[in-house]
Nucleic acid binder design. Sequence first.
DNA 1: ATGCCTCCCCGAGGGAGA
Length: 259
Amino acid sequence: MKIATFNINGIKARAEALPNWLDAARPDVVLLQEIKSVDEAFPVSLFEDRGYNVATHGQKSFNGVAILSKLPLEDVTRGLPGDEADDQARWIEATVVGKTALRLCGLYLPNGNPAPGPKYDYKLAWMERLRARAAELIAGEEVALMAGDYNVIPQAEDAARPQAWVEDALFLPQTRDAFRRIVNLGFTDAFRTRNPGPGHYSFWDYQAGAWNRNDGIRIDHLLLTPQCADRLVDAGIDKEVRGLEKPSDHVPVWIELDL
DNA sequence: ATGCCTCCCCGAGGGAGA
């Protein structure tokens, strides 16, 4: 089962590039971030025509997450627990059942800039809520994954120019500490287990020719519970998508699971 | 680089992104 995460930076702007990638890459499941659309405006038929079931958690203009799946989506829940007052659409869960059941968690973690400030406070608070949900997945010994745009550069090797990010909310020590607290519950960074070393990125800024200079960062991650990591077969980044017509600033990151 | 693009809102130009 091929599962991908892809921050599309707006479903309306990606109405051609996203289906083109789906037709070429043929993932079984896709966790989408930044759909920037309300649920009613999401072009469901675009994906149903290709054999996908669709679950969305959108809002107007900003954020928004969705799941596409060739298998039926069961037990869909929306919103990250822990703060009833948080109305930002950044979290969605669903279960798909292949040879065994797999719990999917799709996430769009807050950017947090500028730091320090209220946006950074929100990021750290959101990460603490994420840690709590992550601990439940570990405790339940679930075959589960949490995938999406984490807006976290885990290590210096995950940036082409790490020195440019030292005061950025994506790379501050407090951000990386919070990310490690989650990973260290027992998760596997799927891409890293299959692709060690520097030079692997999932985001290139639209500005300053970042793509042409390969000035990227790796901030889109798939974290697997131990029971899920047991089934990991392969992982990769579809880097070439960044060079196609009207691309998102992120590219798909994918795994193959024996499920 | 307190931002060189691109997204969203909609129908100008500002907020947000990373």
